[in-house]
Design a protein around this nucleic acid. Structure first.
Length: 855
RNA sequence: GCGGGCGUGGUGGAACUGGUAGACGCGCUGGACUCAAAAUCCAGUUCCGGCAACGGAGUGUCGGUUCGAUUCCGACCGCCCGCACCA
C-alpha cells in the first residue's frame, strides 16, 4: 500500500465489533413493563419462515423495519423491535419424508443458521424476546387461546365441503385457494366433505369491514383488497312457493341484490348441490347425471373453461310472489351453493349471466329496465345491468331502480314473501389440517360425550417426537399411544384430535406474544396493554388478505376473551416491494445463477465456458429461475452496511427494487468515500467557529439536510433520505480544507453520521467514535435537531414567465411584496416582452411572476 | 367482467397544497493522477438547431379547465395488482 492511498474502512472487522458492543450494552433491549416514562413504539416486521437461509426479501424487509426502529429510538421512544420464527409448516415434514430428518431438529437447525445471518446484518433487535411458534411454550399458549375462543362460541365443528389439496394431502381455507389451486403446492384443489374446526370469523364480518375505516396508516389498496374479500352486499331474500311441494319442501328462497327487477323474472335456478336439486335427482336419472357432471367439473375445469353456462330443466314450477306468474325451475352450473341461498331468480334483461342462459335455452326475456324514463329498449346480447328506470313492472313502473328497490322490499315484507338481508363473501375460517408439524388442536373425542376440551391441567398437548413418516397421511394417526386418552368428562377411553392448526393461526397472534414472551398465560395484560398495538408493521403485499385479516380477527377474539384491550393489531402498515433480478438462460434453456454470468457491452456470456447467455425478464428472485443473490455472499464481500444502503437507496420501498451488481458497487463506493472523508474530518477536529459566508452556507446546508432527512424517514421515503445524505457529503467534500470552514465541516460530518446511523449503523458508529471519542455509542445518542435560524433563507429565486413560459429569474428576499418584485421582474424579461403590452401580471410570493402580454 | 394503481432522460427515480421538470444515484463521454490498471478527483450528460449567447420541443396519446398542468377533469392506448359465474 502506498502512502498516498487512503486507509480503507475495514467493514469485515468493524461490523462484528459494533454488533458485539450493542449486544454488550443491551442497546435494543426493552422491558415488558418499562418504568422509565419514555413513550412506546412497537416496530415489527413479518417474521420469517425458517427455510434455512435468509434471502434478499428478508434483507429488504428487516432493513426497512430497522431504519424505523433505530430512528424512533433516537427520537426518544422505548422501541420494541422483536424477532421470531414462523416455524410450523410443511417443508419440515417434506424434509422428514425426503431426507429422513427430524422436523424439529431440521427446523431448529435452520433457525440457528438464519439467526446468525440476521445478526450479521446488524438489525437492532431485542433477541431476548425471540421465540419460534414450534416452541411448546408458544403453541401451548395458543391451545389455551383456542379453548377460550371455544368457550366464547367463536369455534365450531361441522362437516363441510372443504378444499382438498391432493398434493399436500390437506385441507385449505378459501383464502388459500388461488385460481382453483393450492397456494403452496399449486395443485388443482378438489372438493371433499370432512368434519372440521372453524373459527367464526364471519361473526366479525361487519366489524372487520368497519374497522378498515379507522386504519388511516394502512395502504389504501390493502384496505380495498380486504373490503373486497369480506365482500359485503345489500339485497333481499325472496321466497318463491313451489307449485307442488317436493320432499316436504314447499318453497325456494333466493338471494338477490336486484329485487327491483322481480317483474322481469324468466326462470328460477338452483345450484347442483341445492337440496331441491338433490331431491329431484332421486327420481330423475337425467337430473342426477347433470348434477354429477357439474360436480366432476369441480373447481378446476370451471376455472379453465370459464363459463359455459349450462342447465337442466327440472320440470318444477315456482310462483312469483309479486306477479303471481309461474316460472320453470332449472339446475344451473353457474349458481354457487356457497353464496347467498344457492338459488337465484333469473332476470335476463338486467343480468348478463341470466341473459346468456336465457338465450341458450330459449327462455323469455321480459324488459323491465330502461336507461331512459318512459322507454322500453330492446335487449339483444347486452344486459341492462346499470341503474336506470323500471318499466313494464306494475306499481314499480316509472321509479328509478333505486327507488324501486326500497319500494319492492317494503312490499315483500308486507306480503311476508321476503325481507331485506345483507350477504357476505367472507366464509368461516377452517383451521383443521391433517398434518404432523403443527400445533395440536387440544380436543379429545369421546364416542359418548362428543368432542371435549383438553382440561387446563393437561395442557399443553405436546407434539410427540417419536413419529415415523414411512406412510402417507398424518403420522399422528399412526402413533401407537399418543392419541389414546381417557375422556375428561366420562373417563372412558377416547381419542385425541390428530389434526393440527393451520399455520396461519400461529402467525395471527405472535405480535401480542412478543410483548411478554415468557408469560405463563398467552399474554401479560399489563405488557400487552402497554405495547400494543404494533405502531409500524412492515411486510410483503402478498399477506394483504390472509395473514392481516386473520390477525385482525384474532385480535378481536382475544379482546372478547380478555387477552388484549385492542381490536386492531397494526396501527400502521407498510407493504414493501419485491427484490427482483435479471434472469439468465443458456442455449439449452437452462436457468443460470447471476454469478455464473458475465455481462458485457454486447450482452452476456457464461463465466467459464464463454457460451452466449440470454438475458431474460427482470422478475422476483426465485429459486426456480435461479435469479437469486445470496445475502450471505454479498455481506461477506461488501459488508452488511452496503447491502442495507443498496436496498434503501435506489427506489421507493413500496416498489420493486432490482438488484444489480453496479448498484451494489455504487453503494460500496459511497460508503468507502464517506469513511474516507469522515476520517479526514475527524483528524482535522472540531476547529474554530467562523462566521464566514461559506461557513454559514455549509451550516445551512447541514441543517436543511437534518430537516429533510427527518421528514423523509417519517414518511418512509428512504430513497429521498439517501439522496439528501449524498448531497450533504458532496457539500462537505466541496468545502475542502479551508480553515474557516473547519467547524462547519465538522458539524456537517457529525450530522451526516447521525442521520445515516439508522441506515448504515456500523459505519456510523465507526465514524462517530472518531469524531466524538468520549461520547459512547451512537446507538444511544439522540436524533439531531435542525436550528430554525439556519433553516431560514435570506434570498429566494423567483421564476419570471411571459405568457407562461420561463424567460428569466430574479433574486428576492423571502416574502417580498409585489411593489418590489414586479419592477425587477419586468426588467429581467424586458427583452422577451419587447414592445408588447402587459394585459395581466400574476405574482406568487417566493415562487413566480407571470406577465400576460399581447402584441 | 368488476375494483384499484401506474406511464417522466440511456437507466432507478425527484418535483410539498397547480408555480423554474429531470434533485440524487447508476451508466456514459472527456480530462487529471499512473509505466499501466484499479481507486480517486474534475467537467459534461433530456432531445433538436447553434462555436456560443440563445431559440424550439418535451412528463403514454388526444382534448379540456387555468395567467400557468407531471400535478386537476374527460376520452383513449399500454403495463401491473386484487377479486370474479357473488345473483
Amino acid at each position: 500500500m502506498s502512502e498516498t492511498e487512503p486507509t480503507r474502512y475495514d467493514f469485515a472487522a468493524a461490523e462484528p465489533y459494533w454488533q458485539a458492543q450493542w449486544q454488550q450494552q443491551a442497546c435494543f433491549r426493552v422491558e415488558d413493563h418499562p418504568r422509565d416514562g419514555r413513550p412506546k413504539y412497537y416496530v415489527l416486521e413479518m417474521f420469517p419462515y425458517p427455510s434455512g437461509k435468509i434471502h434478499m426479501g428478508h434483507v429488504r424487509n428487516y432493513t426497512l423495519g430497522d431504519v424505523v426502529a433505530r430512528y424512533k429510538r433516537a427520537r426518544g421512544f422505548a422501541v420494541l423491535h422483536p424477532m421470531g420464527w414462523d416455524a410450523f409448516g410443511l417443508p419440515a415434514e417434506n424434509a422428514a419424508r425426503e431426507n429422513n430428518a427430524d422436523p424439529a431438529e431440521w427446523t431448529y437447525q435452520n433457525i440457528a443458521n438464519m439467526r446468525a445471518e440476521l445478526q450479521r446484518m446488524g438489525f437492532s433487535l431485542d433477541w431476548s424476546r425471540e421465540f419460534a411458534t414450534c416452541d411448546v411454550e408458544y403453541y401451548g399458549q395458543q391451545q389455551k387461546l383456542f379453548l377460550d375462543f371455544w368457550r366464547e362460541g367463536l369455534v365450531e365443528r361441522r362437516a363441510a365441503n372443504v378444499n382438498w389439496d391432493p398434493v399436500d394431502m390437506t385441507v385449505l381455507a378459501n383464502e388459500q385457494v388461488i385460481d382453483g389451486r393450492g397456494w403452496r403446492s399449486g395443485a388443482l384443489v378438489e372438493k371433499k366433505k370432512l368434519s372440521q374446526w372453524f373459527f367464526k370469523i364471519t361473526d366479525y364480518a361487519q366489524d372487520l369491514l368497519d374497522g378498515l375505516k379507522r386504519l388511516d396508516r394502512w395502504p389504501e389498496r390493502v384496505k380495498l383488497m380486504q373490503e373486497n374479500w369480506i365482500g359485503h352486499s345489500q339485497g333481499a331474500e325472496v321466497v318463491f312457493p313451489l307449485a307442488e311441494p317436493v320432499e316436504g319442501m314447499a318453497s325456494v328462497a333466493v338471494y338477490t341484490t336486484r329485487p327491483d327487477t322481480l317483474f322481469g323474472m324468466s326462470f328460477l335456478a338452483v345450484a347442483a348441490e341445492h337440496p331441491l336439486a338433490q331431491a329431484v335427482a332421486k327420481t330423475n336419472p337425467q337430473a342426477a347425471a347433470f348434477i354429477a357432471e357439474c360436480a366432476s367439473q369441480g373447481t378446476s375445469e370451471a376455472v379453465i373453461e370459464a363459463a359455459e353456462k349450462r342447465g337442466f330443466d327440472t320440470g318444477l314450477r315456482v310462483v312469483n310472489p309479486i306477479t303471481g306468474q309461474s316460472h320453470p325451475v332449472w339446475i344451473a352450473n353457474f349458481v354457487l351453493m356457497e353464496y347467498g341461498t344457492g338459488a337465484i331468480f333469473g332476470c335476463p334483461c338486467a343480468d348478463q349471466r341470466d341473459l346468456d342462459f336465457a338465450r341458450k335455452y330459449h327462455l323469455p326475456v321480459p324488459v323491465v329496465v330502461s336507461p331512459a324514463k318512459d322507454s322500453a329498449p330492446e335487449v339483444k346480447d347486452q344486459a341492462l345491468d346499470g341503474e336506470g328506470y323500471i318499466v313494464n313492472s306494475g306499481f314499480l313502473s316509472g321509479l328509478t331502480t333505486k327507488e324501486a328497490n326500497t319500494r319492492i322490499i317494503a312490499e315483500l315484507e308486507r306480503r311476508g314473501a321476503g325481507r331485506a338481508v345483507q350477504n357476505w363473501r367472507l366464509r368461516d375460517w377452517g383451521i383443521s389440517r391433517q398434518r404432523y408439524w403443527g400445533c395440536p388442536i387440544p380436543v379429545i373425542h369421546c364416542e359418548a360425550c362428543g368432542p371435549q376440551p383438553v382440561p387446563e391441567d393437561q395442557l399443553p398437548v405436546v407434539l410427540p417426537r417419536d413419529v415415523s413418516f414411512d406412510r402417507p397421511g398424518n403420522p399422528l394417526d399412526h402413533h401407537p399411544s399418543w392419541r389414546h386418552v381417557n375422556c375428561p368428562a366420562c373417563g372412558r377411553p377416547a381419542l385425541r384430535e390428530t389434526d393440527t392448526f393451520d399455520t396461519f393461526v400461529d402467525s395471527s397472534w405472535y405480535f401480542a406474544r412478543f410483548t411478554a414472551p415468557r408469560a405463563p398465560t398467552p399474554t401479560d395484560r399489563a405488557a400487552a396493554d402497554f405495547w400494543l398495538p404494533v405502531d409500524q408493521y412492515v411486510g410483503g403485499i402478498e399477506h394483504a388478505i390472509l395473514h392481516l385479516l386473520y390477525s385482525r380477527f384474532f385480535t378481536r377474539a382475544m379482546r372478547k376473551t380478555g387477552h388484549v384491550a385492542i381490536d386492531e393489531p397494526f396501527a400502521g402498515l407498510f407493504t414493501q416491494g419485491m427484490v427482483t433480478h435479471e434472469s439468465y438462460r443458456d442455449a439449452q434453456g437452462r436457468w443460470l445463477y447471476p454469478d455464473e454470468v458475465i455481462r458485457t457491452a454486447e450482452g452476456a456470456m457464461h463465466k467459464k465456458t464463454g457460451a452466449p447467455v440470454t438475458v431474460g425478464r427482470v422478475e422476483k428472485m426465485s429459486k426456480s429461475k435461479r435469479n437469486t443473490v445470496d445475502p450471505g455472499a454479498i455481506v461477506a464481500r461488501f459488508g452488511a452496511d452496503t447491502a442495507r444502503w443498496f436496498v434503501l437507496s435506489d427506489n421507493p420501498p413500496e416498489r420493486d427494487v432490482e438488484w444489480t451488481e453496479t448498484g451494489v458497487q455504487g453503494a460500496y463506493r459511497f460508503l468507502q468515500r464517506l469513511a474516507r472523508i469522515g476520517e479526514e474530518v475527524a483528524r482535522t477536529g472540531p476547529g474554530e467557529a467562523s462566521d464566514a459566508p461559506a461557513a454559514r452556507k455549509l451550516r445551512q446546508m447541514t441543517h436543511r439536510a437534518i430537516e429533510a432527512v427527518t421528514q423523509a424517514l417519517e414518511g418512509f421515503a428512504f430513497n429521498l433520505a439517501v439522496a439528501r445524505l449524498y448531497e450533504l457529503l458532496n457539500a462537505i467534500a466541496a468545502a475542502g480544507e479551508a480553515p474557516e470552514l473547519a467547524a462547519a465541516r465538522f458539524e456537517a460530518m457529525e450530522s451526516l453520521v447521525r442521520l445515516a446511523a439508522p441506515l448504515v449503523p456500523h459505519l456510523a458508529e465507526h465514524l462517530f467514535t472518531r469524531l466524538r471519542p468520549q461520547a459512547g455509542l451512537l446507538a444511544n445518542q439522540d436524533w439531531p435537531v435542525a436550528d430554525p435560524a439556519l433553516l431560514a433563507v435570506d434570498e429566494v429565486t423567483v421564476a419570471v414567465q411571459v405568457n407562461g413560459k420561463l424567460r428569466g429569474t430574479i433574486r428576492l428576499p423571502p416574502g417580498a411584496d409585489a411593489n418590489h418584485a414586479i419592477p425587477l421582474a419586468k426588467e429581467a424579461v424586458a427583452g422577451a416582452i419587447g414592445g408588447q403590452s402587459i394585459v395581466k401580471q400574476i405574482y406568487v410570493p417566493d415562487r413566480i411572476v407571470n406577465f400576460v402580454v399581447k402584441p
